[in-house]
Measured scan of single mutants.
Amino acid sequence: EADPRLIESLSQMLSMGFSDEGGWLTRLLQTKNYDIGAALDTIQYSKHPPPL
């Protein structure tokens, strides 16, 4: 049985245009305790590393 928090967070992320191919988004949301903001921060950080 999927956690209702996961279903809600995942559906919101999917509606933003993200995909869960391979389950990466599910794993990220689980790691971030279903916090969409924290997940988005992680995605943003990985796409744009800080300048040295």
Rank of each mutant, 00 (worst) to 15 (best):
P50K: 14
I7V: 11
L29D: 03
S9M: 05
D20V: 00
W24D: 11
L10H: 04
S46N: 12
S11Y: 03
K47Y: 10
E21F: 04
S9C: 13
N33H: 12
R5N: 08
T26V: 02
L14V: 12
M16I: 06
P4R: 09
T26W: 00
L25R: 02
I43T: 05
P50N: 13
W24L: 09
R5Y: 06
A38D: 09
I36V: 15
L40C: 06
D3V: 03
Q44R: 14
P4C: 09
L29M: 05
L14C: 07
Q30I: 11
F18H: 05
S9K: 05
Y45K: 14
K32F: 04
P51V: 09
Y34K: 04
T26G: 05
D41F: 04
Q12M: 10
S9R: 08
K47W: 04
S9W: 03
T26K: 03
L25A: 03
Q12D: 07
M16V: 04
K32H: 10
E8A: 11
K47T: 10
T42H: 15
P50S: 11
G37R: 15
Q12K: 15
A38P: 03
E21L: 02
R5H: 05
M13F: 05
E1I: 07
D41H: 12
L10Y: 08
W24S: 10
D41L: 07
L14R: 09
H48S: 13
Y45M: 14
G17N: 08
S46A: 11
Q44M: 09
S46F: 05
G23L: 03
L6G: 04
Q44P: 14
G17C: 00
A39D: 04
L14T: 15
Q44I: 07
G37V: 10
L40K: 08
P50R: 13
Q44W: 08
R27T: 10
L52D: 11
E8W: 07
P49K: 14
Q12W: 05
N33K: 12
H48I: 15
D35C: 04
G23T: 03
D3T: 02
I36M: 08
L28M: 07
I36C: 10
P4I: 09
P51I: 12
M16S: 03
F18K: 02
S15V: 06
M16P: 00
H48P: 14
D3M: 03
L29K: 02
L10E: 03
Q30D: 02
P50V: 08
L29S: 03
A2K: 11
L28C: 03
L6Y: 10
K47I: 09
T26A: 06
E1P: 07
D3R: 02
M13R: 00
D35E: 08
L25F: 01
D20A: 00
D20P: 00
G17Q: 02
A2M: 15
R27D: 09
N33P: 00
D41Q: 14
L52E: 15
Y34I: 00
P50L: 10
K32P: 02
D41T: 10
N33C: 05
S46E: 14
L25Q: 02
L6N: 02
L6D: 03
P50A: 13
D20F: 02
N33S: 08
I36P: 06
W24P: 04
G22W: 00
G23H: 07
L28E: 05
P4K: 13
G17L: 00
F18Q: 02
E8S: 13
M13L: 10
A2N: 10
T31G: 10
T31Q: 14
D35W: 00
Y34P: 03
F18G: 01
T26N: 00
T31D: 15
I7S: 12
G22H: 04
P50F: 07
L28S: 04
A39T: 12
Y45P: 09
G17Y: 01
M16G: 03
P49M: 07
I43R: 02
T26Y: 03
Q30Y: 06
L10R: 09
S9F: 05
G22N: 12
Q44L: 10
S46W: 10
L14S: 10
P51H: 14
G23V: 00
S19I: 11
G22E: 11
G22A: 05
R5V: 04
L29C: 01
D20S: 01
L29Y: 00
G17M: 00
Q30V: 12
M13S: 01
I36K: 05
S11A: 13
G17A: 01
M16T: 02
S15D: 14
L40R: 07
L28F: 06
N33W: 01
D41S: 12
L14H: 05
S19L: 07
Y34T: 03
Q12A: 08
K47D: 13
M16A: 05
E1L: 04
Y45E: 15
R27E: 12
I36R: 04
L28Y: 04
P4Y: 06
A2S: 15
P49R: 11
Y34H: 06
M16H: 08
A38H: 08
P49C: 12
P49S: 12
P50M: 12
E21H: 07
E1R: 01
W24V: 08
L25M: 07
D3S: 05
A39S: 11
L40Q: 05
Y45H: 15
T31L: 11
S46R: 14
W24K: 15
E21T: 11
K47E: 14
A39V: 14
W24I: 12
P51F: 10
P49D: 15
I7M: 12
E21Y: 04
E8Y: 11
L25G: 01
R27A: 11
Q12S: 09
G22K: 08
G17D: 03
I7H: 09
E21D: 08
L10W: 00
D41K: 15
A39Y: 00
